[in-house]
Design a binder for these strands. Structure first.
Lengths: 185, 185
DNA sequence: CCTCCATGTAAACACCCGTTGACTTACGAC
DNA sequence: GTCGTAAGTCAACGGGTGTTTACATGGAGG
């Protein structure tokens, strides 16, 4: 009944939920502790403080799919499918939302997004489209994917319209273009 | 030297700057008052409180350009040009940044974005592409434009790469597709 | 069964922030 | 010139939040 590891996990889960829903500044450590069903002081005991808990909560892996066996013409669609699945499929859908929401106001989260971009997205794009234009293509891709996440999962803007099949296709084609279409006219 | 209107303007300007740079929760009314060179109490006297000052600070008009004389094939490019000019050209570039940054965590700002979307973007799209698919096309457009703003002006993600001429063209083509390309396969 | 340490609790501390009310100062009217 | 009112200042209050310290508790080892 008294398990330090389990309580740490419950605190992390509650923290991600709160941070994802209301951002860093608007969530209090007491709320998180209440959600987890433990005392507030344990946050400081186990993580050091609110900031450290936050850092642990946003230590997220994108789990980008293996695209080595996907035909080049289908990669855009495959990526969009992956992202939608990632955002809506699992119950722990807060994993990425917390990042997109909090990165707007919390420097550490913004740095984490930049890090994910550098270490996970850019290498993948480089592998697909070559090193030369990888940074620019990855930047373009980021604007569309993060924009989708920002509108749909942070602002709930036009949420009803963004799940339709045609939307997947339209955005998939955009990703495809950003990856492979010639950059110069 | 003692001009109520002028001090209110100075307070609004300082507020927009702070809110744009650090979001709503992380900026204090004392900072704003100091920037404006006046006493804190004036914020409450003139605006009622921090929330009301914020509401006034984000009362922004998109100033979407008149597209009636633009050939249909150039509308995407024209819109992208307008957005880049709007974001980078003027000194008061905080006007939109404050919205995109704060909407992630402040309900009033999120509501304001939704309102701008409904009252300014959707009608324009409806005029260009017809009422039938206007909502979906406007939603798609929003994901790309807000994503660009979010990456470039909130996160500073790949900022160096996103100003190039080719980027304008790539994103302009995306806008063009979201406005006019057939939605169904 | 007793003891000891990790686990968890409770209360208080220290600080910051938004707000308020009483006070002071400048400017215009007469 | 003086008087009144708007413009601006000052200091204090009240609430909330992250953190800390001292205390309680439960379970494993002797």
């Amino acid at each position: 009944m008294r398990d330090a590891g389990a309580t740490q996990e419950r605190l992390l889960l509650a923290a991600r939920r709160r941070f994802a829903a209301h951002g860093f500044e608007r969530t209090t450590v007491r709320e998180i502790a209440d959600d987890a069903g433990v005392n507030v002081a344990l946050i400081n005991r186990y993580f050091g403080g609110k900031e450290d808990l936050f850092a642990r909560a946003v230590a997220i892996d994108l789990q980008l799919p293996d695209l080595s066996s996907v035909p080049q013409g289908n990669i855009g669609a495959r990526l969009v499918e992956h992202f939608f699945h990632r955002w809506e499929g699992e119950p722990a859908d807060d994993l990425l939302r917390v990042l997109v929401r909090t990165a707007a106001t919390h420097p550490a989260a913004a740095a984490r997004v930049a890090d994910i971009f550098e270490s996970q997205v850019r290498p993948l794009v480089a592998m697909l489209a070559g090193d030369e234009e990888a940074t620019q293509r990855a930047s373009l891709l980021a604007t569309q994917v993060l924009g989708l996440a920002y509108c749909r999962y942070v602002l709930n803007l036009g949420a009803n319209e963004l799940t339709r099949e045609s939307t997947h296709r339209m955005i998939g084609e955009t990703i495809q273009r950003y990856l492979f279409a010639p950059l110069e006219a």
